[in-house]
Design a protein around this nucleic acid. Structure first.
Lengths: 207, 207, 207, 207
DNA sequence: CTCTAAACGAGACGGTACGTCCAGTCTTCGG
DNA sequence: CCGAAGACTGGACGTACCGTCTCGTTTAGAG
């Protein structure tokens, strides 16, 4: 009694499964592009995708997970490593292409997800599971390959040294405009020096 | 005689100005401590502070600004620089004390503010105005002093090199647990090398 | 975070208290008139009244109670008894005016309320508290007055005999069209005979 | 080999036709008994009956019709008239057995159906088609038989007079507790007097 | 016995209304 | 005027059902 009516006058055939999922992903990205992450609502996504909220909640328990899936579906899988033969050029190449991917709605989404993770610890876990620092991950592989060529001594590198470049780039991505970021300088002034600097030369810790 | 229903029987004289402001700050921090940033609501703050929402909105246009004021009111002003005579030890000392300040409700608030800034560009501006990277700022002053002592050549340092250490620490603060973070390693493996590494020695850019 | 925005561009001054309540009652009756009880939704009422659902739920826990208040607010209080000097004419007069009141949106509402009471026992209680059978109640008073005049012997009347007329009328109101109902016949063929028939003349029970 | 995902491992042979219909009726009554009419949902009925909603909608266009069929399937067909030789005793007998049938889930269903009819005029029509006032219907046949015996003069009876008894009983059934209802008093104080009272003795209408 | 069409079971789909929560604004008193 | 209290408009939330649909499986009946 007195519940929803629900006559169905829409475009048959009804979408299901992956077809519908894809349409929802599109809707999420479209909403992100036009309104931004802060204005992203489940109602709007459902309306834009031409479906009902139930179909969203049936697949994703929270908005966060929906956005994660929508975003990561657009990201390339395992990056093809560039292979210039030079460690430095490989890094420049990789970081540049990653930076390119962080613009537009995808970048907005990633920022938003990170934002929610900062606000809600519950979300933080889920985001962490999903997110790999693409930059750090790829850098490690490039460095390993360079070590194979004998270009550097990877065994001497600490995780912290590898993390420095990606950390700076991520900070810039998150809190500044990605436009005014000079990747070449980052590589030459920070990343390469840390990769080649002799370990322990300044190990004054034990003095 | 017949007193109105919602009459006000509070005996304490009504608070005004800074007294009230301080009470509100306390309420904000208390809410942050018990519920976290995600559950922080204006209603709850007002109720806890024993005031009305209007008194909040009269002072702060948004929740974000209220939290910023509440948090920065608890932070120390210009940090007294430590002076150990050694660049490295000054840095270790400073970073350690900054890290200590980032725990508890204040840390939660800062994370939350950063989070909202990531979600809403409008908020981002306001947050940026307020927030200075304490670590970066202080590091610069310490380095300048060391340059005065002749310990290093500050003129050769690029902003990127200075930024690396604070960037790593911030990343860790934002997205990992601050507990398992080794400041000494950061200083010895990343910051110090970058400060002392000869500039341009690896400038293969022009090759 | 990410909760409703809520900018306020509406007609000030804002309505409160009884003014708002009256506007809501109007909205309920208007919705009843245009859509019927079955299509009555809280959303529609709120929209029509130009308020939010919260203001409805703040006042009434359920739609049923809202409708009851809205309807009973339009009903006249204690009916002025007609006084023709004749028992029969008083009854005809009263029943006719009651029947008149049961048409239009008010009638629809009463039917709807009764309907919900039949479906949900919880509602039934609330409805029972509100509703008095106006017909039965008034009939009793008229009969008592006639007894005062010596027209009949009220002490001999059983409640069941009084109930017959109102029961038939109510049944007709609830399950048939009120238009084709002949009150005069009801009075002459059922009510008056029962009021004047000697009690027990047919007490064959004990035979 | 590779079996489809949603394969069907149920061992029991699939039910069809009247076997399935009977199972659905059972489910409806079971739901009514455990949850009441208000909580009756098509989903729950389908689940309880171990079938799909499509099988319900294939048979009944609305929940109302389903419930009507389920309920009327349990009701006895044409009542065997009692035959005590006395009009009064026949009536008492009949009304008593009808009242007995109105308890339990069937009574709840009938109340619920009536309720929905009051809320939705569309439903009202369907319900009216189905429902015959068993009491009124049977009463008429008993009275006719008594007239045949010469016990009363049926030609003088108006429909309104016949309706009074059933109306009172129905009202009691719908809006009060059937337990505290005295059928004997109803018969002796209302029904019998109206059946035997000389018509028109009070016809003051034309005066 | 095989083949086909229909019915069956399960549940996803597009949709409406629910009742709750909070944002930000406004009103009403009392000091 | 400002403080305290809280009601107001509005919008999104996540849930429950609706009635329809699609999908694979089972069954009955025809050839």
């Amino acid at each position: 009694m007195t519940q929803g009516a629900g006559s169905d006058h829409r475009s048959r055939p009804r979408r299901r499964g992956s077809e519908l999922t894809a349409a929802i992903y599109d809707a999420v990205l479209a909403e992100l592009a036009t309104s931004g992450y802060g204005e992203l609502t489940m109602d709007a996504i459902a309306k834009r995708a031409g479906t009902g909220k139930a179909s969203l909640y049936r697949r994703w328990p929270t908005r966060t997970e929906l956005v994660m899936d929508a975003v990561y579906a657009t990201l390339p899988g395992e990056q093809d490593l560039p292979d210039t033969g030079s460690l430095r050029d490989d890094i420049v190449c990789t970081f540049t292409s990653i930076a390119a991917g962080l613009s537009g709605p995808v970048g907005a989404a990633l920022r938003g997800l990170r934002g929610e993770a900062l606000i809600d610890p519950t979300v933080a876990e889920r985001v962490r599971d999903y997110s790999r620092s693409a930059a750090l991950h790829t850098l490690r592989r490039i460095v390993d390959r360079a070590a194979g060529r004998g270009e550097i001594d990877a065994s001497k590198l600490s995780p912290l040294r590898l993390a420095a470049g990606p950390a700076i780039m991520r900070n810039h991505f998150l809190f500044n405009d990605m436009e005014d970021f000079d990747i070449v300088s980052l590589v030459d002034e920070v990343i390469m020096p840390l990769l080649t600097h002799p370990t322990g030369s300044l190990q004054v810790r034990d003095i």
